[in-house]
Amino acid sequence: MAELALYVRLEAKPGKEAALEQFLKDALEKAMAEPETPVWFALRFGPSAFGIFDAFPSENGRQAHLNGEIAKALLGRADELLATMPQIELVDVLAAKLPA
């Protein structure tokens, strides 16, 4: 079971909402290539509020993701897309229902 997770809150710059949404949609391909990231969601909470939730079976997987391609790409475009730096929370998964 993926017991460790990340919750990342993202706030788009005014006028960059569509670009951030597309960035997150495009990031799915990179997430699919991460063997230690079995759970990955890109989220939209409102007009400019977005997020990422992902879960991992080990701390090594979580750290690999934090140092991986999605994080590098997001930080590389942070000045362009984000109103504030990403708010990253390390969280524990207490229970989950996932497809087999």
Rank of each mutant, 00 (worst) to 15 (best):
A49I: 00
A18Q: 10
P99S: 02
S58F: 02
F41P: 03
A2P: 15
G76V: 07
A95M: 07
D79F: 07
A71D: 01
L66N: 04
A49S: 08
L74M: 15
A96H: 07
D92Q: 14
L74A: 13
P57R: 07
D26Q: 12
L28F: 08
G61T: 03
M1I: 04
E21A: 15
L94C: 01
A96L: 10
E11I: 01
A31K: 05
E80Q: 12
E69G: 09
E21I: 01
K97P: 01
A12G: 02
L10T: 11
A83Q: 06
Y7C: 08
R77M: 09
A71E: 11
R77K: 14
W40T: 07
P35N: 05
P47V: 02
L43I: 05
L43D: 04
F23T: 03
E69H: 11
K16V: 00
A73R: 12
F45P: 00
K72P: 09
A49R: 08
L66V: 07
F23Q: 07
L98R: 11
F53W: 13
A95T: 11
E29I: 00
N60H: 07
H65N: 06
N67R: 04
S48K: 09
P35E: 08
E29F: 13
M85W: 08
A49P: 00
V39G: 02
L94N: 12
S58R: 01
E21Q: 10
F53S: 05
A18R: 07
V8H: 05
P47I: 00
P14C: 03
L24Y: 01
E29N: 13
L10P: 09
D92F: 10
E59D: 10
S48G: 10
L74R: 10
V93Q: 03
A42Q: 06
G76I: 04
N67P: 00
P47A: 13
A64L: 06
A100T: 07
L28V: 11
A49K: 05
A19M: 05
L43K: 06
F41H: 14
A27M: 15
K13V: 06
E34N: 04
L81K: 09
F53H: 12
A5L: 05
I88P: 14
V93M: 11
A42M: 08
P47N: 08
A5G: 15
V93C: 13
E21S: 11
A5N: 01
V8P: 01
N67V: 00
V93L: 13
L43Q: 02
A19P: 02
N67E: 15
G51C: 08
V8S: 02
L4M: 14
D92G: 13
L94T: 11
L10F: 03
F53Q: 09
E34V: 03
A55K: 15
A55S: 13
V93F: 08
E3T: 15
A64I: 02
N67K: 13
A78R: 12
L28K: 15
P38K: 05
